[in-house]
Structure formats: C-alpha cells, structure tokens
C-alpha cells in the first residue's frame, strides 16, 4: 500500500475503520430501498396537507357566503343578450343555453382561425425558401413584428383602429360579392337556398345572405395574423430539417421550385411540422379567449357575465377550465391521428 496514489491520510471516513460494518443494518433513512418511499411519503403528505387546507377554506368560505357548490342556477333564465350567436339564444333562455352559445361562438372562431392561420403560416413558412430575396426578408419582418407585440394589443388594434374606422353605407369597401363596412362583413350567398344574391344597400344599410360582425372579423384577423407567424416558424423549421441534398436531387430531376417543395420536401418535413402545429393550434384555441377584449361573445365572455350575475365563481371556473381542457385534448387527439397518418405514409 505504499503507492503514491493512495496516501494513507485519505483513508479517513472509515471504509476499513470501526467495527465490521458488513454485519450492521443501515439506519432506515440511509437505506437505498426505503428512500424512494420516504421521499414520496413526505411529498405526498405535504401535498395532502396543502390540498386539505385549501379545500377546507373553500368549503368554509363558500358556506359562509351561502354559495355551496350547486348546479341548479344553470337552469335559471340568463337575462342577458348575446349579440351574435351560431346557436339561437335569447335573454329568457337559461344560463346553460347561454354558455352553450358562447361555446358555439368559440368553436366558430377557433375553427375559422385554425384554417386561416394554417394557410397564412404555410405560405409564409414556404416563402422563407423563395428565390426572391425581398419576399424572404418581408416574411422575416412579418414574423419578428408579430412575435414581439402582445396578441391582446394586436387584437384591440385590429378592432378599434382598423375595423371600427371603416366607413358605412356607400363608402364601404366593396368587391365582387363582398362588402366590408363598419357594420360588418357582408358576403354573397344563396338566398332561400335558391338564387345567388350579393350584398345590397337597403335604406343605407347593407344586407346580404351572410353577415359577419366586425368583432368576429377583428378576432379572426388578429388570431390568423398572430398564429400565422408562429406556424410560419414551425413550417420553416420543418422544411429546414430536410437535408439540402433532397432539394438538389429534386432539381437535378428537373423539378421546379413548387414541384420540389410539394412532392419532395413537404412530405419529409411533415413529421417534423405536425407536432409543432399541435402546440400552435392549442395555443390558438386558448388565445381565442381574448375575444372578450373586442366584444365578441365567446365562451369566456359569456362565463364572465354569468359569474358577475350569479356570483357562482367556483362552478363557472370549473366549467370554463374543463371546456378548454377538453378542447385542447380534442385538438391533440386530432393532431396525433394526423401524426400517425403522416408517419405511416413516410414509411
């Protein structure tokens, strides 16, 4: 043991010292098998205490306020109106119909937003690889501009600055089959399911088979522009993940830019893009709750009014959180299915 690698002074801390440790049992807090249980028991105990403390307070305070959990108020008449609704709703209908109408409005905004943001994001993401330098730089400006400004600010900007400053009546912006005025967006459509009718000015008020409120338009444009920028980055990342050799191979086969991106690059980029899209879609669904800032009666807006009228804070928030959770899970499930599809195709 005379080696210079093991100086004797380092022998402290007793591997060899003391009585034969091989025969002694370790104390329970130094037993490798027990430690996981000890830690978990401790953490579990603390968590349990915390939950018990909070729930205890909740029950006590709610009882004192006479607001103990009950769902009966859902059946009482709401008493408020909803300006526009996919599902029919009037003030004398019960609260649950109101919340349902709000959910309908949320679903409309989310589904339209998903489609719009996907189109905008895909185009913008692909434009990053355009041969036109100006277009590439313009897309960078778009993404950097949108990502560094709060969505809520963008929404109120679209609503108060852009849509509310539109003219009404004859001065409104008019296109073939489309009229955009302060009172809304008017689209051509089938009247009575028979004849094709465009927007018409009747007594200085526009009328058309299909009218979208400016609130909805502002929300939709805001969500599409915002999520579009994030989706553009997801698409860009996905395309960038395809090795450069694939582009070269495609162009050496004589494929043009559009053909190579469509037939060679996108199919390989999709497995990378889809998970990123999932995240963006979910955040779009959650972001739609900012509709309340532009006066669009989505689920959150209706829930807020309901709470203010009934004082049923706990029930309303359980409903709200539960609904958004289900919405997220729904989107995730759809995107997972798409992911599977994309992967199988890749193989």
């Amino acid at each position: 043991m005379g080696s210079n690698l093991t100086p004797p002074q380092l022998r402290r801390g007793g591997l060899n010292g003391g009585d034969n440790p091989g025969l002694s049992q370790p104390p329970w807090w130094r037993n490798r098998l027990l430690i996981p249980w000890l830690v978990q028991a401790l953490v579990g105990f603390v968590l349990l205490l915390l939950v018990a403390f909070l729930l205890g307070n909740l029950v006590r305070n709610l009882t004192a306020a006479g607001l103990l959990l009950s769902w009966r108020w859902l059946g009482q008449p709401a008493g408020f109106d909803i300006a526009e609704s996919v599902l029919p709703f009037q003030a004398e209908m019960p609260y649950w119909r109101g919340l349902l109408a709000g959910l309908g409005n949320t679903l409309r905004a989310v589904s339209c937003g998903l489609i719009g943001a996907t189109v905008v994001g895909t185009l913008a993401g692909m434009a990053n690889f355009s041969s036109n330098g100006l277009l590439r730089r313009l897309v960078r400006v778009y993404v950097e501009l949108v990502r560094n400004i709060p969505l809520l600010l963008q929404l109120v900007f679209w609503y108060f600055v852009v849509f509310l400053s539109l003219p009404n009546g004859l001065a409104a912006l008019q296109g073939p089959g489309v009229v955009l005025a302060k009172s809304g967006l008017y689209l051509a459509g089938f009247h009575n399911g028979l004849h094709w009718v465009g927007p018409q000015l009747v007594n200085d008020v526009w009328q058309a088979p299909l009218r979208l409120s400016v609130e909805f338009c502002a929300l939709l444009v805001g969500l599409v522009v915002y999520s579009g920028a994030y989706i553009a980055e997801v698409v860009r990342g996905g395309i960038a993940s395809v090795p450069a050799g694939q582009w070269e191979a495609a162009s050496s086969l004589g494929l043009g830019w559009l053909a190579s991106i469509r037939h060679v690059v996108i199919p390989q980029a999709l497995p990378v893009i889809v998970p990123g899209l999932n995240t963006q879609y979910i955040s779009l669904a959650k972001n739609s709750s900012l509709a309340v800032a532009v006066g669009y009666a989505d689920l959150y807006a209706v829930a807020e009014t309901t709470l203010n009228q009934t004082g049923r804070a706990v029930e309303v928030i359980i409903l709200l959180l539960g609904t958004y959770l289900v919405l997220d899970l729904l989107i995730s499930a759809l995107m997972n299915a798409l992911n599977q599809f994309v992967r199988i195709k890749e193989r």
Binding site: L15, N16, N20, P21, G22, Q25, P26, R30, N31, R32, L33, L34, I35
Partner: peptide, 9 residues
Amino acid sequence: GLPLGNDLR
C-alpha cells in the same frame, strides 16, 4: 470488506 448493498453510507 464493505458490503455493497442498500446502505447508502
């Protein structure tokens, strides 16, 4: 001489 078991020490 030290057994390598469940004793963390």
